[in-house]
Simulated assay, not measured.
Amino acid sequence: MAEVQQNDGGGKGKGHQKKMQIRVDFTPMVDMNMLLITFFMLCTTMIKSQTLTIALPSNEKVQNEENMSQASADDAVTIILDAKRKTGSFDVDTVNGKVQPIIYYYFGKPGGDAGILGPGGTVLSENNNIQESEFLANDEKSGKARGIREIIQQRNKDVLTEINKLKEKYASGGFGSLETKDGREKAQMAYDEAASKIRKDENLKKPVIIIKSTPQASFGSLVSVLDEMQINSISKYQIDNMTKADSLMVIDFQNRHHK
């Protein structure tokens, strides 16, 4: 509250001007501030930090750590993430400021059994087994898998065939009733356990996917490929660094096809 005090300064006479002093009491403002703080604390929605959780295969049961990054040539699939380049140039191509992703892949070893390098370290283009793929997941009209998803599904078809059987069994109530919440939760747990056994079944042929990226690749393309690992029930995959052979294969492919 404000309080006005008059003070004549001890002066006398008709012409002497009286002075007024105004004092504002801010004590009630303390209560108001506490009420406002309490209001905002109760009404504010707490936003959790949004982070990306990447679920990678566990290596707890690996007995020989030296063989963790090794895979047979028949099972190995290497995916290289890159950005599209302008025609006749190695400059990155962008649309509305966004990098256009592209994927290269090859099966087995770089250059196959013969290798990618010839005498003097020259690249043997005839041995270059790298291929280019679209970054599309499904065809808009048919809904069938395209691009890198189609390639992954072809290599993992044995596992996906068994997983699809489980999905049909789940939908028909084979894992329990889906009419109640408890029933759905129990059925989902039974399905997850059965699907996990299929992904770990060593009798089924399954690929080992190695994911690599060039410096030009976007982080979003890496996230998309990791999503494909989950969507297509890939149990063995890893993120690795580019090798000299990988870089030479990509450059050789671009020189021969993107002029």
Rank of each mutant, 00 (worst) to 15 (best):
T44H: 03
K167L: 07
L81G: 05
S142C: 06
I54R: 07
E179G: 09
D192Q: 14
T44G: 12
K14W: 14
E179T: 13
N255H: 14
D139W: 02
P119G: 06
T53A: 08
N59S: 06
L178Q: 05
K197C: 07
S235V: 03
I148A: 02
K109C: 10
V159K: 01
R146P: 08
T51G: 10
A73C: 08
S235R: 12
K12H: 04
M229C: 06
S224C: 11
D158N: 02
S233L: 04
Y104S: 07
Y105R: 04
K12T: 11
I163L: 02
P57A: 09
R256T: 10
D8W: 07
I239R: 13
V24P: 03
A137N: 04
F253E: 00
H257R: 12
N241M: 15
A2Q: 07
Q6E: 15
G97H: 00
A76G: 08
D240P: 13
D91M: 03
G118P: 09
L56E: 13
T122M: 06
L42T: 15
G183F: 14
G9F: 01
D192G: 09
I163T: 03
Q131M: 11
D252C: 13
Q188K: 15
R23W: 00
Q254T: 05
S89T: 14
G97N: 12
P119M: 03
P110V: 04
L35D: 15
E150A: 01
N67Q: 12
A73G: 10
S221L: 12
A55H: 11
S58R: 08
K236L: 04
K61E: 11
I234T: 04
V99T: 14
G15L: 09
L36W: 00
I210P: 12
I102A: 04
G173R: 08
S72E: 03
S218Q: 15
R149Y: 00
F39T: 02
L166F: 06
M249R: 08
K86W: 02
Y170R: 00
I152A: 01
Y237I: 01
S58C: 09
G9D: 14
S177R: 07
E3S: 10
D113K: 08
K48W: 00
L222C: 07
R149H: 03
E134D: 05
V95T: 15
Q154G: 14
N255Q: 14
L248P: 10
M229N: 05
E140H: 09
Y106Q: 06
D93K: 03
M229P: 13
